[in-house]
Amino acid sequence: MDGDELTEQETALYDRQIRVWGADAQRRLSKAHILVYGIKGTVAEFCKNIVLAGVGSLTLVDDREVTEEALSANFLIPSDENVYAGKTLAELCCDSLKDFNPMVRVSVEKGDLSSFDVEFFSKFDVVVVCCCSLTTKKLINEKCRKLPKRLAFYTVDCKDSCGEIFVDLQLHRYSKKKLEETVECELKYSSFEEAISVPWRTLPRKASKVYFAMRDLLAFHEELTEIILMLVSVLERFEEVEGRRPGEVSIEDLPGVLKLKKELCEAQSLNESHIPNGLLERLVTNAREFPPVCAIIGGILGQEVIKAISGKGDPLKNFFCFDATDGKGIIEDISSCNTGS
């Protein structure tokens, strides 16, 4: 392990967190390379968290220019037009992030993520995508899975008071402490495509195994998780069908979204009342991120990535949903049968 030791500077800077996850996890972090696509408030939070944690490098991809919406939940962009004019979101965020921790290499890659080839992704250990279409998510997840090395893939989205994380670690080996012993574990994940193809009506049954002991709360939890998942699904599909850019829906689209929901529910033989119109309406009319939810989702995603890199502790499998209106965070395992837990 020569040359692998943490430097004095690292030990001083990371003192408090080494006490949480140990020196070996810190060493692994410092060698990890992260790719992020699509920078909104939640991703800004995530980037801050992993840059502070001390990853090896962070590569940002987002060629969009600054809009009022981009400013609304993103603290990485200085609110000065003289500074941000003519720069892309990725460039601006890169400048701020570099400042947070000089020991992390932060850089910008230009281009559309879906056009990058498989080879491009081989440089990374973790890929996080945000604000992109259902098709792009599937495509990138597939490319990551084609590589011989195991790449951790995450999607993250926040709308209004709701947030969602999807995780694909393929085959993940890790250790965890059980009482005094350290045990080795292994988890197999479904791809994004497999996970979202799981028929909706089968979800409650699967979930009920997890919540065996809690009948009363159970029904409620299941319902809520599904609602968020389905809402996101409905919106994703709407964007796909209509050829919209992600998040580009407004109140005028509500009838269309509701119609699609009806069709989806019929196709999935699911009672329509499972997806309340009111919640859909809320997400359609207000697709903006709510900063406290960005902090929560970005914090949980940051911790998940640190877990995946360090190989320590049970990782999230495979959906996490949060709604600030009731303060609930739910982990739901939605995997296809052949990769079931």
């Binding site: 967190q17 949480v20 801050k48 406290p292 939810v293 902090a295 929560i296």
Partner: peptide
């Protein structure tokens, strides 16, 4: 008596405080 601390937990808690 050093208290262990990481950014992620603080960020999550701060989000909950604001809510």
């Amino acid at each position: 008596n050093i208290v262990h601390a990481v950014a992620t937990t603080n960020a999550i808690i701060a989000g909950l405080i604001v809510i």
